[in-house]
Simulated scan of single mutants.
Amino acid sequence: MCTNGVNTGQFEQMIDQIDDHIKLERRWSHTLAHMAGDAGYETVSEKLHTVQALLDDVRAALDEAKDALEDDAASASNITVSLV
């Protein structure tokens, strides 16, 4: 469905693509944090665990953006065009 010139379905898919990318980077930061910790690099491990937590925050914000997209599209006052 398009609302105010934005295809909301595609927009949501793009947010999902960003989320998938962040999910992968989170997994890598988690793996590297444990590798660093196992090698005795405690400061590096701690920093990478911080990165992991920040990426969790990013993913939560992306979920909020998807919810906001639905809310904004529902309350948009201009013309709405639906694909039939």
Results as ranks from 00 to 15, higher is better:
29 S>E: 07
26 R>I: 06
65 A>C: 14
38 D>W: 04
16 D>P: 00
43 T>E: 15
22 I>L: 05
74 A>P: 01
52 Q>N: 13
23 K>R: 02
68 A>Q: 05
25 E>T: 11
61 A>V: 06
68 A>T: 15
70 E>V: 14
50 T>I: 11
73 A>H: 04
79 I>E: 10
81 V>G: 01
81 V>Q: 07
68 A>M: 10
33 A>W: 00
60 A>K: 03
62 L>P: 01
31 T>D: 05
79 I>C: 07
8 T>Q: 05
74 A>D: 14
3 T>Y: 05
28 W>C: 01
34 H>A: 11
54 L>W: 01
56 D>G: 13
23 K>Y: 08
80 T>V: 15
50 T>S: 10
78 N>I: 14
44 V>Y: 01
35 M>N: 06
60 A>L: 13
53 A>P: 00
82 S>K: 03
54 L>F: 09
24 L>Y: 05
48 L>G: 06
33 A>V: 07
4 N>P: 01
27 R>Q: 05
9 G>M: 03
13 Q>W: 07
48 L>W: 05
17 Q>K: 01
58 V>A: 12
63 D>G: 11
70 E>N: 11
79 I>V: 15
22 I>C: 01
19 D>A: 15
28 W>D: 04
74 A>C: 13
15 I>E: 00
36 A>G: 05
29 S>F: 05
43 T>K: 03
38 D>Y: 06
59 R>A: 07
22 I>Q: 00
28 W>M: 10
57 D>R: 05
23 K>M: 03
53 A>W: 06
76 A>Y: 14
57 D>C: 11
79 I>Y: 08
78 N>F: 09
27 R>K: 04
5 G>A: 12
63 D>Y: 07
27 R>A: 09
45 S>G: 14
15 I>A: 06
4 N>I: 08
6 V>M: 10
71 D>N: 06
29 S>Y: 02
19 D>R: 02
53 A>T: 13
56 D>V: 15
11 F>S: 02
67 D>E: 12
18 I>P: 00
61 A>L: 12
